[in-house]
Amino acid sequence: MKQILAAAAMVLVPGAALADDEIVTRGSEFTVAQTVDKLTAAIEEAGATVFAVVDHGAGAESVGEDIGASQLVVFGNPAIGTPAILDNRQAGLFLPLKVLVYQNEGGQVMVAYEDPEEMFDDLGNIDDDAEYIAKMSGALENFVTAASE
């Protein structure tokens, strides 16, 4: 059953099967909650909008499972994301941006996000050198650094 669900996720969820180089991951010195607080503060301070924080850990607990603390921060800035969508409407599948903060199996708090250049790689009309990709990459790096150190 798990194999069927994993296969379905890869078909239904954009980016569900990602190569290791497409996901940028780093450790955090803080708890998941502290890291998420620092991340959302950095995002808002930069003028972007936090649209949602999805608590995967609480969701798992609601069905009797324990995946540890895990929260997905969904955020964006239309001034940066809209040009990507203008270049290819399907870019909207990948936006707004997302950062996952989670406790791995060893108990280490990790912060992960999809590399914007790789995220849009299979979409036509989006140049790897597009200014908005550089802005997204820089913002993600800055936010994650602020949240994890």
Rank of each mutant, 00 (worst) to 15 (best):
I4N: 00
L5M: 10
L5W: 11
A6H: 09
A7E: 07
A8G: 01
A8S: 02
A8H: 04
A8C: 01
A8W: 09
A9E: 05
M10V: 12
V11A: 07
V11D: 02
V11G: 00
L12H: 10
L12K: 03
V13G: 00
V13P: 00
P14Q: 02
P14G: 04
G15F: 14
G15P: 11
G15K: 09
A16V: 14
A16W: 14
A17T: 05
L18M: 15
A19H: 12
D20P: 13
D20K: 14
E22P: 02
E22G: 14
I23E: 02
V24P: 03
V24F: 06
T25N: 01
T25E: 00
T25P: 02
T25Y: 07
R26K: 10
G27I: 07
S28R: 09
S28N: 08
S28Y: 10
E29D: 07
V32H: 05
V32M: 07
A33N: 14
A33G: 10
Q34P: 09
T35D: 13
V36S: 05
V36Y: 11
D37L: 04
T40F: 09
T40G: 03
A41G: 04
A41Y: 09
A41S: 12
A42R: 05
I43N: 01
I43L: 08
E44S: 11
G47K: 12
A48V: 08
T49V: 13
V50Q: 13
V50F: 13
F51L: 14
A52L: 10
A52W: 14
A52G: 06
V53Q: 13
V53Y: 10
V54L: 13
H56A: 04
H56S: 03
E61N: 12
E61L: 12
S62R: 14
V63A: 10
V63Q: 11
V63I: 15
G64T: 06
D66E: 08
D66A: 15
I67E: 01
I67A: 11
I67F: 14
G68M: 11
G68H: 08
A69K: 12
S70G: 01
S70P: 05
N77L: 08
N77Y: 12
P78V: 06
P78F: 12
A79Y: 02
A79V: 15
I80V: 15
T82K: 00
T82A: 13
P83Y: 01
A84F: 15
I85N: 13
L86P: 00
N88Y: 04
R89A: 06
R89L: 04
A91M: 01
L93E: 01
L95A: 05
P96W: 03
P96H: 02
P96C: 05
K98S: 07
K98W: 11
V99F: 11
V99L: 10
L100A: 08
L100R: 08
Y102A: 06
Y102S: 05
Q103C: 06
N104Q: 02
G107L: 06
Q108E: 06
V109S: 04
V109F: 05
V109H: 07
V109I: 09
V111Y: 02
